[in-house]
Amino acid sequence: MMMKPDTSNPVAGTSPNLLVATIRKPWIWSYLAALLAFLATMVLSGGQGALSLLYAALTFASFSVMVGIGQMFVITLGPGNVDLSIPATMTLVATLSLKFMGSEAGLILPGFLIALIVGLGCGMFNFALILLLRIPPIIATLSSSFLYQSLAIWSNRGLRIKPPEPLAEFSTSGVLGLPNLALVALLLAGLAWVVLERAVVGRWVLAIGQNLRAAQLSGVPVHAVRFCVYVGSALLAAVTGFLLASFSGGANLNMGAEFMLMSIAVVVIGGSSIAGGNSNVPGIWGAALFMFLLVSMLNSYGLGAGVRLVLTGIIIVTVVIVASKRKHSA
């Protein structure tokens, strides 16, 4: 059968016309939405505080970006793959590492190391449940998150330990007008882009997301790739939890709660396919900025948290519908 080849190829399109190529990218919409939310806020304030709003947006978006990257790789693995243990991992890591450091500046590096080790442990435990006990990832990560949350409650006992002074300083300041946190998140996003778009492992993740059996029969080491993805997601959650606790003056038991929805939202709004196999990194930044700017816009128009959550839900549903429609018509 002869068919007209589809000209808009999201995967390997290298159009000579850069503008057209950019417009076709699925992530462009998240940036446009962020810009709209920003402008709407500025209309109300008459342009007052534009810079400080951007600075705050970059800072808070950084957390969503870091967990979003991990979640993106997990979602890319295909239907049923999602990491619901991100919030609990963040809480557990923050609780344990801050307790260990006990506000001592000298223990920052070992504290960070502990954060990574706890994250590694969480990731390995998640994947062990998925692989050895054959529990669907969504159930496995949900149930393990109860475990992590309980551990955090048990070790925290209602104490709020302050982060060491230099660490708090680092996470709340910036260089060259950019928040340090944003720089860290940018660096991680850059790395994630290289892994996804240029590295063999990234190809393998995308292949598994499209057809696990075909990938395996083409020599892709499927267990190793999925192991790395789940451990990677937990490690990124660990780094985020560590930095968030340092930023906000200590760990607290519901610090991760909003990142359950947020980590998935930034992936989907950023233009990655919820069905897996087709993802992009730039969209995560656009979506994370949009999510923050949306909240500040609603706040400045005097709307409360309830409206904000309703809107977030509506936006995610809309994006998923639009994305699936586009695929059908293509």
Binding site: Q210, A214, S218, S273
Partner: peptide, 17 residues
């Protein structure tokens, strides 16, 4: 079932192994 990765280009399908 066993071969084609439906979202990808010919190029990426060909080079996977």
């Amino acid at each position: 079932r066993d071969g084609v990765l439906p979202l990808w280009s010919i190029l990426r399908n060909l080079s996977l192994a």
